[in-house]
Design a protein around this nucleic acid. Structure first.
Lengths: 153, 153
DNA sequence: GCTAAAGTTCGGAAATTTCTGAAGGCTTCG
DNA sequence: CGAAGCCTTCAGAAATTTCCGAACTTTAGC
């Protein structure tokens, strides 16, 4: 029963990740990486656990690899590839916000460039730019504090 | 031509906001609120600007109101309602991350409760919990620093 | 090399999201 | 009170996303 609850929690997490921008299947696969008992998992493991096709898993794993949330392990002469969640997965996931902030910043600056000082739009866009500039400046320090606290020395 | 560039920038911003979790039409409407020259806009203004139906605008404005990004202005005996972007729209938008963090945290704790200390899954879930706990602790200070810097006194 | 398991790719089906258009309700003004 | 404008709601259509399944490629082991 506890086992059942565990995978319910996994699926709930997947839903949140989906709303956070991840593809549905990628999110579910990530939940497996997180909640599995094994040290590493294969694509077959994921397909079995989720009850989905190998094709779907292939795409999901590829996506997770590309954003650096999981890693492929050196497979010593095995027929299947093994993968696992990276230790820094969560800070990596958070760091994607960094690029979002940059795009917002640039959109604001483009808008500012097309408006005259004094226009209401100019005011609003400037406020927006200031905020995201502030945010962009804060993020590095935030991640640094995390790393210091988490791996002292 | 500059006018054209401006609304191109607006549509680009809308795309980013969409990827950030907003509904497509809400994102486009928000872009109008941001880039318009007028102090306030009506639903008709938005519909004209975006070339969409009144029904779509109604839903989008409703959503933006509910998350506190725009506000309805006291309309002194006018037939149409006027709305405008709230001054604290961006910090409000950022604050929605706060609830995301809480859900992630809770998912991790649920998972931890279903695993035994020493399980690989237990380790992973604990790391996850630690990160989001850290994040949750940092966010208030971050917003406070913004408000201090932005409205000194 | 041959075989078979594992993984990849991609066309199309299914499901979900998103938008419209029309009907109806509410409010202001004459 | 009546008319007209503005807004809301909702069913259905359109568009997009998502997934499967089958064919193809690659690699390990014999």
């Amino acid at each position: 029963m506890s086992e059942k609850e565990r995978w319910q929690a996994a699926e709930r997490l997947a839903l949140v990740l989906t709303e956070g921008g991840l593809q549905r299947m990628s999110a579910r696969a990530l939940a497996v990486f997180l909640f599995t008992d094994a040290e590493t998992v294969t694509m077959g493991d994921i397909a079995d656990r989720l009850g989905v096709s190998a094709g779907s898993v292939s795409g999901a794993v590829k996506a997770l690899l590309s954003v650096g949330l999981i890693e492929r392990l050196p497979a010593p002469g095995s027929r299947r590839e093994h993968y696992r969640l990276r230790d820094d997965a969560w800070s990596t996931l958070f760091s994607t916000q960094n690029t979002v902030v940059r795009v917002m910043l640039q959109a604001a600056e483009t808008g500012i460039a097309t408006t005259a000082s004094g226009d209401p739009a100019h005011e609003r866009l400037t406020r927006m730019r200031d905020f995201y500039e502030f945010l962009l400046g804060e993020l590095p320090g935030l991640l640094r504090r995390w790393q210091e606290q988490h791996s002292p020395r």
